[in-house]
Amino acid sequence: MIELTINGTRHRLDGDPAEPLLYILRNELGLHAAKFGCGLGQCGSCTVLVDGKAVQSCITPLAALAGRAVTTVEGLGTAAAPGVVQQAFIDEQAAQCGYCIPGMIARAEALLRADSRPTEASMRSAMRPSLCRCGTHMRILRAVRRAAMAMGGGIVDPTEPAS
């Protein structure tokens, strides 16, 4: 029996403590934002927040989550009332197929919670674990910059690296 909080609601889950969070979210709780991409922690599609940090839920066993707080993208807002980062992604139309985007949003959320004034380099480095195959990267970065501004921060240096 493992007790954890998901989007503010306490859950008591029994079953295999090894089962990665991703399958619980998608198949047991009907939370579909986190996606299966690789099951190997290589692509970031399944990223959620655990205690405010970006974590790949496909390699996070339930047993690792006892007493911890999980936030999925569903917990950040709804289509009618999107969260700050979600709104920034909508404003930038930062999606093509959209499959990777919930993971991107979770990762951006974790970054901006830790530091609402990241540098361009630290933003890219924070987003690096997440893959996008459609090539939506430029819009995703724009959305993160926009979200940082909306949170009262911003990207501290220009987008062009020093020569």
């Binding site: 090894a18 390699i59 066993p61």
Partner: peptide, 11 residues
Amino acid sequence: AALFRGACAAC
């Protein structure tokens, strides 16, 4: 063992 099975075994 449980943590390994969920976090590491896939590889």
